[in-house]
Amino acid sequence: DYYEVLGLQRYASPEDIKKAYHKVALKWHPDKNPENKEEAERKFKEVAEAYEVLSNDEKRDIYD
């Protein structure tokens, strides 16, 4: 669930989505996790995908 990936509720505002994305993206950035790079890359891609969908009103409506 994209909301879960970003740690958000379904009623999150666009500002909340952006803030959550930056927080979680920093947490899972591969450069910040050199000891667990493969998992970090996978999680970072999930976070980016979730943000791409939830930050676009049209894609978010379809997802919801």
Rank of each mutant, 00 (worst) to 15 (best):
D1P: 04
Y2H: 09
Y3T: 02
Y3N: 04
E4C: 13
E4G: 12
E4Y: 06
L6W: 00
G7Y: 00
L8A: 09
L8C: 14
L8G: 04
L8Y: 00
Q9D: 08
Q9H: 09
Q9G: 12
Q9F: 03
R10C: 08
R10D: 06
Y11V: 09
Y11E: 15
A12H: 03
A12Y: 00
A12E: 03
A12K: 00
S13A: 12
S13P: 09
S13Q: 15
S13M: 06
P14M: 14
P14T: 14
P14V: 12
E15L: 06
E15K: 05
D16L: 02
D16Q: 07
D16W: 06
I17V: 15
I17H: 00
K19I: 10
K19N: 15
K19A: 14
K19D: 08
A20H: 04
A20N: 06
A20I: 02
A20F: 00
Y21N: 01
Y21G: 04
Y21A: 05
H22D: 13
H22F: 12
H22K: 07
H22N: 14
K23S: 14
V24G: 14
V24A: 10
V24Q: 11
L26N: 03
L26R: 14
K27V: 08
K27P: 01
W28Q: 07
W28I: 05
W28E: 11
W28H: 13
H29N: 11
H29K: 10
H29Q: 12
H29C: 07
H29E: 07
D31G: 08
D31W: 02
K32C: 08
K32P: 02
N33A: 07
P34W: 11
P34I: 09
P34Q: 12
E35C: 09
N36C: 10
N36E: 06
K37H: 14
E38M: 09
E39T: 10
E39W: 09
E39Q: 08
E39G: 05
A40G: 05
E41S: 12
E41T: 14
E41F: 08
E41H: 10
R42S: 12
R42L: 14
R42P: 02
R42I: 15
K43S: 05
K43R: 12
K43H: 11
K43T: 03
K43P: 00
E46G: 07
E46I: 11
V47A: 15
A48H: 14
A48V: 04
E49P: 00
E49L: 12
E49D: 15
E49T: 10
E49R: 07
A50G: 00
A50W: 01
A50H: 00
Y51F: 14
E52S: 13
E52Y: 07
E52K: 13
E52I: 07
E52P: 00
V53E: 02
V53S: 03
L54T: 01
L54Y: 00
S55L: 09
S55A: 12
S55N: 07
N56F: 02
N56S: 12
N56H: 11
D57S: 11
D57K: 13
E58K: 12
E58P: 06
K59G: 08
K59S: 13
R60S: 04
D61R: 14
D61V: 13
D61E: 14
I62H: 14
I62D: 15
D64R: 06
D64A: 04
